Every structure is written in C-alpha cells, then in structure tokens.
Simulated assay, not measured.
Amino acid sequence: MANHQGLSRRAVLGAAALAPAAAWAEESWPSRPIRMVLPYSAGGATDVIGRLIADRMSQRLPQRVVLENRTGAGGSIGASFVAKSAGDGHTLLFHNIGHAVTRAIYPTLDYDPAKDLTAVTIVAESPMVLLVPPGSPYRTLADLVAAAKAAPGRLTYGSTGGGGALQLVSLLFLRAAGVEMQEVPYRGGAPAALDLANGSLTMLYDAGLTGFALAMGERARALAISGPARSPVMPEVPTMAELGYPDATFMVWQAILAPATTPAPVQARIQQEVAAVLAEPAVRQRLAELGAERVVGNTPTEAQAFVIEEMTRWEAILRNAGARGG
C-alpha cells in the first residue's frame, strides 16, 4: 500500500513538473531561427507557397523562418530528416498531398509518416484541371471516357509518378470512370504540358492556375475541374461530380508538419502564427493567384485527423493500382 502511494505521489509530482516545462517551451518558442524543410525542388507550387508562408512568419516572429529544399525519393528524404529532428518547434516540414502516399509508394522507409510526424495545420487546397490537346476529337469528358472504354490501355495520360499530384488525380479519375490508360512519365508538369499542347498526349491533369492558363491560351481544352465547385477563373468548366464522377473529386493540399515529439503547446503556437499569416488579405490574394481555392489554417488535432484520413484513402487506391516509387 505504501509503495502504491509512493508511486502515485511520484506520478503527480512528475505531471506537475511537466506542466511548467511545456509552458516554458511554448513561451520560449522560437528561441533560434526556424528551419522549414521543403522536400521538393525550388520553383514548384508547393515551394512558392512555402516561401510565402515562411517570409510572412519571419516578419511576425522574433526569429527568421528559413526554407530549405531537401529533395529526393518523392519527398521522403526531407520528411525523414524532419521526423528524426528534435521536437522543439525549430525544425518543421512543409509538405503536400505527397505525404499521404509515401508509405504506399516507398514501403521501406526509415520513418513512419503517420507516427513520426504530425500535422500542425493544413495551409490551403487547390483543384486540378483535366485537359486534352486543343485539336483533340474529345470535346467533352463523356467523349474521352467512351474512347478509353473502346480502346483499353491505348490512350495516354501524363504523370510525374512517385505519388505526385498528377499521378494521384489521374488514378482517381481512371478508377471512378472504370477505364484504363497508359501512363507516360515526366520529370515535371511543364514538359508534360508541352507534349499535351502538341498532341503527343491524350490527357493531362494540371494545377488549376497553370491548367486554366493553358486553356485560355488555347494550348489545351479544359474538360473538367477536380474541385468540389466550379472555379471563378473559368466558370464554364464543369466539375467531375457534375459530370457523374463524384469519386474523382480531388484537391491538392499543403501542410506544415513537425516531429511527433513536439509538445502540444508548441504545435498550437505554430498553428496560431500560421493562421494569423493566412488571415492577411495580401497572403490570401497571393494564394488565390497561385490557384488555391480554399485557405485552411485548422488546428493540429483537425489537421492530423485529416492527414490520417488521406493516408488511408490513398494507400488503398495506390495498393490497388500497384504504384511504387523509383
């Protein structure tokens, strides 16, 4: 009995000691420059959005937020670095939907994306646009689906592979429509768009901003948008759901993540700072220009629940498709 009481007393004292430590961690953050790792190369949409957030946070905080590109293996190299870093809020990860598929694409990871990293907040979501060449005989999505069913595996679509957005949204559409197409790999969306414009590809999904630009410049024809609602940029383009494929609804998202050992008060403080940045009118306008149709900034609990749900969804899709990383 005495031993039990002693254990209980030590547990209470331990909890009491942890509370001031957590409060100190929150109050002292940031005590040095913050490294925000971006696991992709510079110049892409995720990189541009990440730099926007880092720059604005640097202006709000007493320490700078430095964006660092650590590329390779579909984003897993940069993510692994952050997962193994100290959970003190000074090393963060700026990732996108690729985080949700890493386990399915690279089954021999040296970290667990679901357990070793935690989402602090979702930043924004953007739709994709389904495009065909400007001279394509397919003027509607129904035309494209009918042609694909008539010639299984003969039509082509552009993809960056490795669980990237172009591959994910294409697989989602093919599954929803019940058709097969041949995947043509590219190192980036730009060369794929060039091949689409000259008629070398049957179909390509592109990010909302650049996809609409291609269509408005008559270098492609937009058949559908993957978002849940029509875009004000080209309101005449219907959604996948309107055309009978609600299961092909897809939004690319970006998120800020931290090592799972990061104390909850520090996570909450980071989320509050990001939410304040996202509330700035100039930031919201710039995100809209970059194709973001929904600015989020939710809590760590909400963000992590969303990411786990996305992992479950995409791992099932990719497992059925037999997708693997290079």
Rank of each mutant, 00 (worst) to 15 (best):
L13A: 14
R9K: 14
R294V: 14
D116Y: 05
E183D: 13
A279M: 02
L287W: 09
R35C: 09
P185G: 13
L93E: 00
S200G: 15
V66H: 05
G163K: 08
A288N: 09
D47R: 06
V169W: 00
A147D: 04
E289P: 06
Y245M: 07
Y245E: 06
A19N: 08
G135N: 15
P33T: 12
L278K: 00
T108Y: 13
Y40A: 12
R35D: 12
A17V: 11
P62D: 11
L67M: 01
V233P: 03
V65W: 07
P246G: 09
A176V: 03
N198L: 05
V307R: 08
M251D: 14
A151V: 10
V252S: 08
V66P: 00
G291P: 05
S170G: 07
V266N: 01
T262F: 06
A151W: 06
A224V: 00
E180K: 13
R103S: 15
A17I: 06
R221N: 06
V169Y: 03
A22E: 14
A83T: 12
P107H: 08
Y157T: 02
Q271R: 09
S85L: 06
A165D: 10
Y106P: 02
A19K: 10
P235D: 15
G325C: 02
V101R: 02
G227V: 08
P133S: 14
L61K: 06
G322S: 14
P246M: 10
L131R: 03
E289H: 06
G297T: 09
G162S: 13
V132F: 06
I256P: 01
A224Q: 02
R284Q: 12
D247S: 07
A19T: 08
T202W: 03
R64E: 15
R60E: 11
G211A: 13
R230Q: 09
G189E: 09
R139Y: 11
R294F: 14
L144A: 00
Q167M: 12
M57W: 05
A165R: 12
G297N: 11
P137L: 01
R286D: 06
P235T: 15
G208H: 13
N96C: 13
G227R: 00
G291C: 04
P300E: 10
A213S: 14
E125I: 04
A151I: 07
G135Y: 09
T299Q: 03
A124G: 08
A176L: 01
T299P: 11
M128S: 11
A100W: 08
P30N: 00
L141C: 07
H4E: 15
D47K: 07
Y205W: 15
Y205C: 03
W314P: 02
Y245A: 01
G163S: 12
G322I: 13
Q272A: 15
W24T: 07
